[in-house]
């Protein structure tokens, strides 16, 4: 009984590894016209500074114009690793599974990132680099920019998908004017 449970668990685990390797993470969560696309800094109409604390954003809501390009300066002011990710609630939910994998593989270790592990070849040219243009993953004290051109509308949130963070309320709303 126990043994068979273990085998099932093992199977489920290796399956999700292969689903992972098949690569939603290698660019997957930038897809979907509804959220917009990477923008050029030169086209940005303004800069919004987003501070990441343990475990919440300041501000927790931003207003944008349809089609607006915004330069986000994202600063991690907390003591833990945090993410800033622009997406729909469904995209965030899918990404949370990947982030859980990153924790289980020791890529995210509470307050630091294991960069060797992030660059490790997972097969088929995939890795856990977390280098999609709609998101940044930052250690405490780090700061980075995201330039994003929003679509005309959509159900968009910026969110931290480090396990447990989104669930406990680390997200903000993007409201269209």
């Amino acid at each position: 009984m126990n043994a068979s449970n273990l085998i099932v668990a093992g199977l489920a685990f290796s399956m999700s590894v292969s689903a992972f390797a098949a690569g939603t993470h290698g660019g997957g969560h930038g897809h979907g016209a509804s959220i917009g696309e990477p923008g050029k800094a030169s086209e940005a109409s303004r800069t919004i500074t987003v501070e990441m604390h343990d475990n919440y954003y300041e501000p927790e809501e931003i207003r944008v114009k349809p089609g607006e390009t915004v330069r986000f300066v994202v600063q991690n002011k907390g003591n833990l690793v945090h993410e800033f990710n622009i997406g729909t609630p469904g995209m965030h939910e899918a990404h949370q599974k990947e982030m859980r994998m990153m924790v289980e593989h020791g890529v995210i270790q509470g307050n630091k990132l294991n960069h060797d592990m992030m660059n490790m070849d997972m097969g088929n040219g995939h890795s856990m680099k977390h280098d999609d243009p709609n998101s940044v993953l930052l250690e405490p004290g780090q700061s980075r920019e995201v330039v994003w051109t929003f679509a005309n509308q959509g159900n968009i949130e910026f969110a931290c998908n480090v396990p447990g963070h989104y669930q406990s309320g680390m997200y903000g709303d993007v409201n269209f004017e």
Binding site: N2, L6, A9, G10, A12, F13, V103, E104, H105, G106, I108, Q109, G110
Partner: peptide, 13 residues
């Protein structure tokens, strides 16, 4: 021991 790298599936055992 690095608990961060503990795999979930053997946690129960």
């Amino acid at each position: 021991m690095d608990h961060g790298s503990m795999m979930m599936d053997n946690q129960a055992q």
